[in-house]
Design a protein around this nucleic acid. Sequence first.
DNA 1: CCCTTATTTCGATAAAAGTCGAATTGTATT
DNA 2: AATACAATTCGACTTTTATCGAAATAAGGG
Lengths: 114, 114
Amino acid sequence: MKADAAIDALGALAQEHRLALFRLLVQAGDGGLAAGMIAEKLGVPNSSLSFHLTQLREAGLVLQERQHRSIIYRANYPAMNSLVAYLLENCCAGAADCGAGVACETPAQERKSA
Amino acid sequence: MKADAAIDALGALAQEHRLALFRLLVQAGDGGLAAGMIAEKLGVPNSSLSFHLTQLREAGLVLQERQHRSIIYRANYPAMNSLVAYLLENCCAGAADCGAGVACETPAQERKSA
DNA sequence: CCCTTATTTCGATAAAAGTCGAATTGTATT
DNA sequence: AATACAATTCGACTTTTATCGAAATAAGGG
């Protein structure tokens, strides 16, 4: 993962509605949620929500797919994984135990997943 | 972790210089780095860097400590851990295997670390 | 085809974030 | 107490982000 992609992803998550939206999709799992359903759950006007969905999609954090009249959104888990890996890359210069706890023990750093 | 804290942390990381700065500290480990050293490594004016350090500190992602004339900054690993846990909380509604891969298998979700 | 539903794009506006030189504060040295 | 050094605060400015109603696009049903 490159710095620009990480900044886009973090920026996409750093907003009240988008953070709530992403967590909603993370919890929804494979089934995903339709745009209208999300707008209703978050209490945000459709046009505003559409703006936020675009941000998350362009940042690579969510995937979209048309189903009949609705558009279904899903969390992109691999993208999330590589974002976390990027943040913790070479933690404590690679020392096995550096007091960082779980953060430093991410099982798969810099995998090819996204 | 609460939503506001997560937004602050994500917003703090969603910026070119601050992301590079945080990763620098993550890699530096327990020794930390002095403000001046960071400014030099990043090629950012002191006043700009100070602004960014404040952002990261207020977001809880870095810790500061005075040492003689310098101020040493360190990554706050527990804060990072709880941020990741917050993002992936109740992933796939708690299903053991949901295709999310590593992301969904965070060992310590919502611990009291930060 | 016309009509309803689902979602996005447009456009104008308001609010927040980033930049950096100059001045300031705090700490050590002689 | 005068000087040098390390870092932060101030202030004026530019750029980016967020909001949401109204109009447009897309898909399916009668």
